[in-house]
Each structure stands twice: as structure tokens, then as C-alpha cells.
Design a protein around this nucleic acid. Structure first.
Length: 459
RNA sequence: GCGAUCGUAGCUCAGUUGGUUAGAGCGCCGGUUUGUGGUACCGGAGGUCGCGGGUUCAAACCCCGUCGAUCGCCCCA
């Protein structure tokens, strides 16, 4: 009809309304994560969606672009600067410190929910998106890294995601990292003028990032840049060896990625990303936002939040990105039974039948209104495994005796749209469920037709 | 913040070198047909052609601006 004079407000840039097959895929990712995290005995934790800006600013440190440009920050009425969480890790670290979770250490935590980053939207990248997250806090052992990665690997497999490989690197301990960083700066400074414009800036701000520059000009200098391995302390090397041999023992495939880095200083030792193989189906589905799951060990984080040094390792993965890779689950998952009222007058009566079957665990499509023809079409589009057509007893129902009609029973006709033995299974389930609540007689010689009377209502 | 492409019915899109009442398919609603049935046919509702300026006798089409979307760059905790 005529449009309202009111303008419809539009959604915020970078937010999404997920519906249909996408929503089913999203739910599948979350459900699978919840199941797998229990196998590894990660405990569920619920976190606030916002924190004092300080929580994220201090954990992220002096990487100014992130704090000033990439976070959703605002002042509350008391004048405090608050920020919608741009990640889970900092909030979990804060909770660990403020709630005394040291008493549970080492503690394995899992959560999921919305994450906010003030960025330009593009494929697989939104301002509000959703992550699953797993952290092990208070464990310094490489076995923690292994278990965490094994869980990630199993999750991806159970999601049915193919063509994604674990890229693994070590950033060493604090001393290793500093020495390597110094050597990289020296190496790139020597060829500064030949680097891309962006990398010349990175040289000052974040030299490690030059290693994953996409610019061709930078690639050749990256190839012969100093390797972290030359700077690894014995301890750091032993740690990395323990991680890799543990992964081998757990049957997790991985490949070394010497250029995989983390910009933030609190990362130590293990850094990893699951990335689609080049040319794979997964790669083309994700566009330029290719990482599917990433994380690392952040032994230096707690101190930046004023806590005692606490080793920790974790990962996060974008639910939407994973959902893009899980194939195409059907939107209209099938109903076991769809009801059709052959006479629209009796449509309301179907409510009680549907309610009983649903309480017994059946998935029922039940129409609200419409002509029989429309109800039939609706039942079809609900992919019902079987239909039940309900109608009044009539004189043409010669199989029944006349006197049975005196209390105006319903005739239910069961019409399977699936194969045996499934069809019989559903039919028997329906008949037995309804028998417990109604006077139901299956007609002799026709298992698919039943006459049904309401039970006498109690006074 | 930068760049490219795009913006016509609920959805997917046509709209020829600017030229009269803006179209199709799908979906939706109604009717006929069918009558154990998601068919076929007929009809209907629904669009200030993102918005605002400009050029022109004339603009969905050309120009400028603006908003929005998509993809990429930067960034990526």
C-alpha cells in the first residue's frame, strides 16, 4: 500500500542483518565450537561488550593507529572513556586480574560474541562482527600451545573446512624479539629508498610488518631479510621445538611461516594463523581477508595491565568468515510433519495437535491460515518429510461406521513424502504420540488414516 | 583516510546514440482451471529510476555534489 511518510532509518555502516542460510551457517559454527571446546575442557566465560578504553589502549600499547582510529570509543555520562571491545583477549586479561582468577590458573576459557572495530567494511570485514575465542591463561608450557592449536584444528575439521593450513612461527622471547627487530631495521634501512612508500613508514612505526607487505617491491628484500632463527635463544628454540613436535604428535599439520609476525610487543614465542591455501576454494570465498583463525602467546600482556607476569596463549576466529566456508546449509531445514487443514475452519484445531507432537520432540510445520491449496504449498516449501491432512468425518468415509461420526471426529490422513523406513517411523511416532492424548483409531486396512476424537475434558 | 565499480518495483535485473503513459522474470494478492493437489491460464497491487543541483525544448540515461553499497589499499589487536 502507500508508503508511510516516515523515513526508515538505515542500518549502521558495517553492521549486518544475518538471515536465512547465512544465519544457519553462523549457528552451525557456534554450535560446533561449543561442542568442541567441551571436548578440550575449556570453560565457558561471558564477558562485557565494553570496557574502559584504558583496558584496550594499554594492552595494545603505543600502536597509535589502532587506538585512535580503529576503536569504537565514546564517553559515558560520567565522562569516562569507554570502548566497545575490539577483541576478547584484553577483557579476559582484565577479568583474570580483577576477579582473582589466578586461583584457577592455569585456566582454559572459551567465549564468543560481537566484536567492534571502526574500519571500512569490505568482504569478510565488518564494524560489528563476531568471534569465537579460546584462551589458556597461566600456563607457560608449550603443551598449552599444542592443546590450543589441536582444538582449533579439530574445530576446522568438524566444520568441514578444507584447504586451510596452519601457518606457524615463533617470535622468541623478549630478548630474541628485540635482537631480531634490530637486525630487520638495519636490513631494511639499507634499502629504504627502494621500499614501497608504505614500508618506508613501517620502518619507523612497525618494522616487523614489512615482512607481510603485499607490495612486489618489498618482496625481494623480505626474502633475504634476517631470519628469526638466527636470533633464537636456546630456551626459545627449545620451546618452539616442543610446540612443533607436540603438533606432530597430535596429528596437526602445520607449515613454518617465517614472515608471520605480530605487531604488538606483548607477543612472545608462538604466533600462528590458519590461512586458506593459495588457489583453494576457501581462498576465493574470503577475498583479501584471508586469515580464518589466528592467535599466539602473549606472555607480556598482564604486566601492561598492572598485573603480575602471567603466561597465556589464545586464539580468535571470525564467525562470519568461518560461516562463509562451511558450505551451503539449507535455509529451510526439513519439517518432519506439515499439517494441512482440508477445511480452513479446522485450522485452529491443528494447534493442539502440533503442540502435543512438539512436546514429544517432533519438528512440526503448522499453518496459521489460508486455503487448503495454500497450506499445501506452504507445507511443500517447508520440505516436510510427511504431510498430515486433517478434515472432518464425512459420509463418504465408508470405512467408518455411522455412529462413530456423532461426535464429529477429525480424520487424519498421513501422506509421506520420504522413503521407507523413515516414513513408517514418523507415522508410528505421530500415531503413538497422539494416542496418548486423544482417542485415536487407525482405520482397519489403512495404516495411514486415523480417526481422532478429543478426550473428554476434565471437569 | 585513499581508490575503483555500482545505486531502476519486495528480490534479480532490462531499459538501445537523452525523446511521448518506465519494463521483464521471480515473489505477493485475487480469480479460473486442476481436484489428492507445489500445475497452467487470466487479472491485480507495488517505482517521486538513492537524494540534491545543473545542462537541454526534453534526462533513468550527460555534468557536479551528496548519501549508500560492493571490492581493494592503509590498518589488522
Amino acid at each position: 500500500m502507500s508508503k508511510s511518510s516516515q523515513k526508515t532509518p538505515q542500518a549502521i555502516r558495517g553492521t549486518q542483518d544475518i538471515f536465512g542460510p547465512d544465519a544457519e551457517a553462523f549457528a552451525f559454527v557456534v554450535e560446533t565450537f561449543e561442542r568442541v571446546r567441551k571436548l578440550y575442557r575449556f570453560r565457558r566465560v561471558e564477558m562485557p561488550v565494553f570496557e574502559k578504553t584504558e583496558v584496550f589502549a594499554r594492552s595494545i600499547g603505543e600502536t597509535t593507529d589502532i587506538v585512535s582510529k580503529e576503536m569504537y570509543s565514546f564517553e559515558d555520562r560520567g565522562g569516562d572513556s569507554l570502548t566497545l571491545r575490539p577483541e576478547f583477549t584484553a577483557g579476559i586479561a582484565r577479568a583474570f586480574l580483577t576477579n582473582g582468577w589466578q586461583q584457577h590458573a592455569p585456566v582454559k576459557l572459551a567465549t564468543h560474541g560481537p566484536i567492534f572495530r571502526y574500519e571500512r567494511p569490505q568482504k569478510g570485514r565488518y564494524r560489528q562482527f563476531h568471534q569465537i575465542d579460546a584462551e589458556i591463561v597461566g600456563a607457560a608450557e608449550p603443551q598449552a600451545d599444542v592443546e590450543l592449536l589441536a582444538m582449533a584444528d579439530q574445530l576446522l575439521k568438524e566444520l568441514g573446512i578444507e584447504g586451510v593450513t596452519l601457518h606457524l612461527n615463533t617470535l622468541g622471547d623478549a630478548d630474541t624479539r628485540e635482537a631480531w627487530r634490530g637486525a630487520l631495521v638495519e636490513h631494511f634501512r639499507a634499502v629504504k629508498d627502494e621500499l614501497s612508500e608504505e614500508s618506508q613508514e613501517r620502518l619507523e612505526k612497525n618494522p616487523l610488518r614489512i615482512l607481510d607487505s603485499k607490495d612486489r617491491k618489498d618482496r625481494k628484500f623480505v626474502a633475504d631479510a634476517p631470519k628469526i632463527d638466527e636470533f633464537l635463544s636456546d630456551e626459545a628454540r627449545a620451546f618452539f621445538d616442543a610446540v612443533t613436535s607436540g603438533l606432530d604428535a597430535a596429528g596437526v599439520k602445520w607449515q613454518r611461516a617465517e614472515s608471520l609476525v605480530r605487531g604488538l610487543d606483548y607477543y612472545r614465542h608462538t604466533a600462528f594463523e590458519f590461512i586458506p591455501d593459495e588457489g583453494s576454494d576457501a581462498a576465493s570465498k574470503l577475498g583479501s581477508q584471508s586469515t580464518v583463525l589466528g592467535g599466539g602467546r602473549y606472555d607480556g600482556l598482564m604486566e601492561s595491565l598492572g598485573g603480575a607476569a602471567t603466561p597465556a596463549v589464545g586464539w580468535a576466529a571470525g564467525i562470519e568468515r568461518l560461516a562463509m566456508l562451511v558450505g551451503s546449509p539449507t535455509d529451510e531445514f526439513p519439517a518432519e510433519v506439515g499439517f494441512i487443514a482440508d477445511d480452513r475452519e479446522i485450522t485452529p484445531e491443528l494447534i493442539s495437535l502440533a503442540a502435543i507432537l512438539r512436546r514429544d520432540g517432533m519438528n512440526i510445520h503448522c499453518p496459521y491460515s489460508g486455503k487448503p491449496k495454500a497450506q499445501f504449498a506452504a507445507a511443500k516449501s517447508a520440505n516436510c518429510e510427511a504431510r498430515i491432512v486433517a478434515r472432518r468425518w464425512s459420509k463418504n468415509d465408508v470405512l467408518t461406521e455411522k455412529e462413530l461420526a456423532e461426535d464429529d471426529p477429525l480424520i487424519l490422513e498421513f501422506r509421506p513424502d520420504t522413503v521407507e523406513p523413515r516414513a513408517t517411523e514418523i507415522r508410528d511416532k505421530v500415531w503413538s504420540s497422539l494416542s496418548a492424548n486423544f482417542d485415536l483409531n487407525v482405520l482397519a486396512g489403512d495404516d495411514d488414516t486415523a480417526m481422532l476424537r478429543p478426550l473428554k475434558k476434565p471437569q
